[in-house]
C-alpha cells in the first residue's frame, strides 16, 4: 500500500473548495493527496424509510472501485449517511483499514438554520476527513478535545477541535503499537 491518499468526490459533487481540502489534508497528514471523482450507484444504498444512505455498504462499494495498489481512499458526498442503530454519522471508516467515507451534509451551517458559510464548511470537512483518515491509520478517539481525533457527535464538537493530530496521536502514528499495525 502506498502512502498516497485519494480524496474521491462521489458522482457530481465537486465543490469549489476541493483544492483547498487537498492541500490542507496533505498538510495535516504529511502525505501526498490526490483528488478525483468516483461514480457510485448511490440508489443501491438508499434507505427510503429514513431518507438516508447506508455508510457501511457505500464504503464497501467504494473499496471495490479502489485501484489496485492504491493507498487510502476517502469518499466525499453530499448525501446524509447512517449506520444501523445510529440516527446519522458524519463519516465512517475502518479502523486500520484503507477506506473511509465522509458526508458534508450536516457540516453545512444552513443545515442548522444558520447563514451559509463556505469557509466554515471547508474547515469542518478538513477535520472530518483528517479524523476518518486517522481511524484508517489505526488511531482511536483521543481524550484531548482540541485534537482532530477527539470524538465529535455534534457539529459544534467539530468546531472545537483543530485540524491537526495532537502530539500523543502523532507519536502513535510514528510508533504504532503492535495491535495497530494492519497489513492490507
Amino acid at each position: 500500500m502506498t502512502d498516497e491518499i485519494l480524496l474521491a468526490f462521489l458522482n457530481d459533487f465537486r465543490p469549489s473548495w476541493s483544492e483547498d481540502l487537498r492541500r490542507r489534508v496533505g498538510a495535516a497528514t504529511d502525505r501526498f493527496v490526490r483528488v478525483d471523482s468516483l461514480r457510485v450507484d448511490l440508489q443501491r444504498f438508499h434507505a427510503p424509510e429514513r431518507e438516508q444512505y447506508h455508510a457501511t455498504l457505500l464504503l464497501a462499494e467504494m473499496l471495490r472501485h479502489r485501484p489496485a495498489g492504491a493507498g487510502h481512499i476517502v469518499g466525499i458526498t453530499e448525501v446524509d449517511l447512517f449506520i444501523p442503530v445510529l440516527t446519522f454519522v458524519f463519516g465512517q471508516a475502518q479502523l486500520g483499514g484503507p477506506g473511509a467515507v465522509v458526508s458534508v451534509m450536516r457540516l453545512h451551517a444552513d443545515y442548522y438554520g444558520l447563514p451559509a458559510n463556505e469557509s466554515l464548511l471547508l474547515d469542518r470537512a478538513v477535520k472530518e476527513v483528517v479524523h476518518e483518515l486517522g481511524h484508517g491509520f489505526g488511531l482511536v478517539h483521543c481524550p484531548d478535545y482540541s485534537c482532530v481525533m477527539s470524538s465529535s457527535t455534534y457539529v459544534e464538537d467539530v468546531d472545537l477541535k483543530a485540524e491537526r493530530y495532537c502530539p500523543d496521536c502523532l507519536d502513535l502514528l510514528a510508533n504504532p503499537p503492535e495491535s495497530r499495525v494492519n497489513v492490507v
Partner: peptide
Amino acid sequence: DEQSVRSSLREWFLEDG
C-alpha cells in the same frame, strides 16, 4: 441478533477505543 447492527456498533466502539 441483527448482523448489521452488530458490525456497525462494533466499528463505532472500536474507533472509540
